[in-house]
Amino acid sequence: MIEARSLTKQYGDKTAVNDVSFTVQSGKVTGFLGPNGAGKSTTMRMIVGLDRPTSGSVTVDGKPYADYPAPLHEVGVLLDAKAVHTGRSAYNHLRAMAATHGIPTSRVNEVIEMTGLTGVAKKRVGGFSLGMGQRLGIAAALLGDPRVLILDEPVNGLDPEGVLWVRQLVRYLAAEGRTVLLSSHLMSEMAQTADHLIVLGRGRVIADAPIADILAGDQTAAVQVKSPRIDELAAALVALGRPNVALAPVSPGTASVTGLTAEIIGETAAANGIALHELTPTSASLEDVFMRLTQDEVEYRTGVGEQDSAPAGAHAAAPSTSASASAASASDAQEATR
């Protein structure tokens, strides 16, 4: 179990992780989702003590990671695939890592076989492809047979077979009762692998819920609307005063509307004399949910028109889409961009 409490990390003026609290439960695969720069990697580095939190704390099974007498047996971590000396062979890299904890060479050979590296184990890591580097990183993470696994973008660069293998591996490890925290930007991958999702955006937790809840909470269909007068339509839709209405720009002149049915949108457009070029109900995928959850005001404004005050108003009622999306974070995010 990993517990983060009010974890904050600042690099100079920039706040990479902002007051993040979450619990990663054992026996489950927890997905860490968020766009680039959301603070996923920074949070993971803080868990294993590579980065020092500016404030807040994080514990692994109740203790700070550094307090364990055998850290490699507690947490296996893949932070980036090439955190390896390029001049050393994969075998020697793993041997050096294993030696710190007195892990026998037999285990080194085991993880090499397990990750499919047998043929290249004696080759220098500098010549490895990204996929091979990932396999070596996973091998290193498994070395201590840890109770907690933290994998940052493990399927990045892997071939389809490797992706499938990672998926089976993490599910198997979680089924054994271990804690698995996995980050990815591949939403479809998360849908097939994770039990629970923690969505990060701009250094904050946007959502923290079982994956089924996040998907179910969003099944209130989105409607894609295309109109040459999209700004006016947006204003009109917001003026209806319905709860939980949100507009997200798809492309110039096109927006995705949630919280309203296609019928209402169509009638509103007709009542205002606004021509519609498209009105398509769409069912939400995890990807849509993710995009919506991580949407921020700046992106919205550049999409639909800056001078219009209506979109900002529409956004105020925005992303309370999922069951447990934090309303506080959403409003705070708006504060930050104002």
Binding site: A70, P104, M114, T118, V120, D145, G162, E176
Partner: peptide
């Protein structure tokens, strides 16, 4: 880089207790 031999065949494997080490100087 063609050696991706059946990775799903063996999983992490339950550890033998003897493999448990400790971080020492």
């Amino acid at each position: 880089m063609s050696t991706t031999s059946a990775p799903s065949r063996s999983h992490a494997g339950a550890p033998a207790p003897a493999q448990r080490g400790k971080l020492t100087f």
